[in-house]
Amino acid sequence: MTTAKLRPRSPDVQIYKPQLTSVLSIVHRMTGVFLSLGSVLLVAWLVAVVDGGDTYAMVERWLRSWIGLLLLLGWTFALFYHLCNGIRHLAWDLDFGFELRSIYLSGWTVVAASMILTVLTWTLGLAVLE
């Protein structure tokens, strides 16, 4: 037992090669946490609409500042990524798409789709603002 206590633990995350499987999974988790922060903004925005013109104008000003826009861009991407990858997970839950080729194909599709949807949304949004 004394030798067992002194045994080193072999490294894991420190040396394991990042792969599409693990990277997309941790990004799903990180976007989830980031979106949780975004949900606070969603509630704050609703409250501001209730509270009236002045509060709403303040929130609106903050959202139109460069930091607000940057965060909104981040939230847009996080939302589309989590949404697309979430659909991928739902398919897996129904036992679809587990062949390695499908896992990689759907993974890259999610990456591309979330980027395209983000660009599309912002193009549309900026067009509305013009």
Partner: peptide, 30 residues
């Protein structure tokens, strides 16, 4: 899973609606 399935259309609706109200006039929004 149930909430995830519900959120797919709901979030698409939310993004589309927010885009439509991107001008953000308070009266219209309320």
């Amino acid at each position: 899973r149930v909430t995830a399935v519900a959120l797919v259309p709901l979030l698409v609706w939310l993004v589309a609606s927010l885009l439509a109200h991107a001008r953000g006039d308070h009266q219209v929004l309320a």
